[in-house]
Nucleic acid binder design. Sequence first.
RNA 1: CGGGGUGUGGCCCAGCUUGGUUAGGGCGCCUGGUUCGGGACCAGGAGGUCGGCAGUUCAAAUCUGCCCACCCCGACCA
Length: 606
Amino acid sequence: MWGGAGAAVRMSTLLAPTLREVPAEAETESHRLMLRAGLMRRLAAGIYSHLPLGQRAIAKVEAIVRQEMDRQGAQEVRLPLVQPEELWVESGRSAKYGEELWRLKDRHGRPFVLAPTHEEVVTDLARREISSWRQLPLILYHVSNKYRDEPRPRAGVMRAREFVMKDAYSLDRDRDGLLAAYARMRAAYARVFTRCGLDWRVVEADPGTIGGGDTLEFVALADVGEAEIVWCEACGYAANVERAEGARPAEVEAAEGADGGAAGPVRIHTPGVRTIEDLVAFAGIPASATSKILFLWAEYAPDGRRELVAALVRGDRQLNEIKLANALGAVRLGMADRADVLAQTGAPVGSAGPVGLRGARLLTDLEVACGGAFAIGANQEDWHLFWAKAGRDFDPGQVADLRLVGAGDPCPRCGDALRGANGVEVGHMFALGAVYSQAMGALYRDDQGRSHPIEMGCYGIGITRTLAAVIERHHDRDGIVWPFAVAPYHVAVVPVAAGEDGTREAGERLYAELRGAGVETVLDDRDLRPGAKFKDADLFGWPLRVTVGRTLRDGAVELRQRRGGLTERIQLGGAAAAIRARVAAGLGETEPPPGHGSQAPDAPGW
RNA sequence: CGGGGUGUGGCCCAGCUUGGUUAGGGCGCCUGGUUCGGGACCAGGAGGUCGGCAGUUCAAAUCUGCCCACCCCGACCA
């Protein structure tokens, strides 16, 4: 696909405007570099034009994705980006998606949406076209723009409102078929991200608005990433912190204290104590021996009913609102303000506690409910209860895993310390099951003539976001350092030193040879001084740079590797062949070993 | 949606507090010349409704109001 005539270009004709100064709009390195190296330009917030080099890099990622999809037997289709909102009403997601769903009307005033994803369209296609078990299984995929009216686009293409995404949909007869498809896609994803040169992890995640059962995220490690993940080196457990389970404490925390409040909680006057910090300072106990109560409004679908909720977690923990929402079945949560809490429960926020709590639905984190005794507000200004125990001193209400898990916390599977990192969510897969097919009536007949909903899975890869993640990982102070696999071009031929005879001609000849050999090459034939060409070459990040200059008098050119800066002389005679071999080797660098990613679906992902 | 910030030639910015000549600088661009191995130099030149609208004023880039766009923090987020 990338061989032949289209694989080479003269810089003098290429629209690749570099910026010497850092654009004010950009904060992350990948965003800055994509602008500075002339890969893209902003049209509106979160919407970009991709220029020739950006387009080529995107096409490289797409090509890798297509190869890996095809390898697993998936079939490419092209689906509409403009979809009747009706379909989304039918699936129930029009309401769930809220304002992020980009709505528009046609001239007749009929409501449409710009596709953020294609479950509805695929399910609709399936219900029309699939009627027999003989037509299954099937995996369809497509690559297209997606639209999400993000409240706050940021970091360029990392969180955009229009972006390129590959999405795949598996259609199966039953759960086993779905799991097999899921495993295949997982294997494909492992190969895709490895080939792109990313340092990535697969983690368990929260299904969010898409619904369904199992879900995995593929996260490219990067400090600027918005996804926080934890993983265990010992047993392989890995999860997004939104999902990561809190380890169930094996036994009662030692923090119970010497006298332990064996006879019951002790009421202590604590003037001015409002926060956990205050309480720790006042009582000289660790924060882990305290607990705190947080008040939130929970909203439920479909009637928008609201309820005040009190969540009790240990003083040193943070509440995971997603877990809380899931425990409640709520669609939305928001912190309640102190006035609301006081009005509803009569409890002052800084001194609120579970003992004698009224007017709010109480949920207690596992850790607090497991038998330990904690210091907690007494529901009276300036008073706290020490050594209060769930079950003995108050009704814990609904007990659930509610805390946010972080690095250093014990692994929920094996107890080892978890590690943590930030990353960019580049892929996501969901074993949907029958949620969409059920809602939209996508049914097939089995060999007995019985009707069943199609078992579905969906699988996304953020193409443009993956590209940003690649740059985030592969750059230095001078510019991009492309891995061969996604570099817009592999080699730059740079003739310099006008004082030397024949550098231009030699450069032209070498360029023609490389081009003829199918090597993806740019010729920097611009009338610029050497320094400017070198700086640009570094910024563009070509994996290899061939300088045709003063060494020409010895019949040699210089071959420089962008990564590491290693420079060597090679004879002009064999240069094209040598460079070609170097490109082939470079392309092999990120090629996964045989069998990579093809492990069983429940094996650790790395 | 809440909080903060910024809008001045293609890019980065100064000028605004304290209204007052032809609105500036650097980079880039065009022409000519000298240069030519890590973003050269000289000379000449083009390019701006100062985000928009309304107001205050003899006079507005500068003051006031409204609006818009963009950025950051938060909320939100397959």
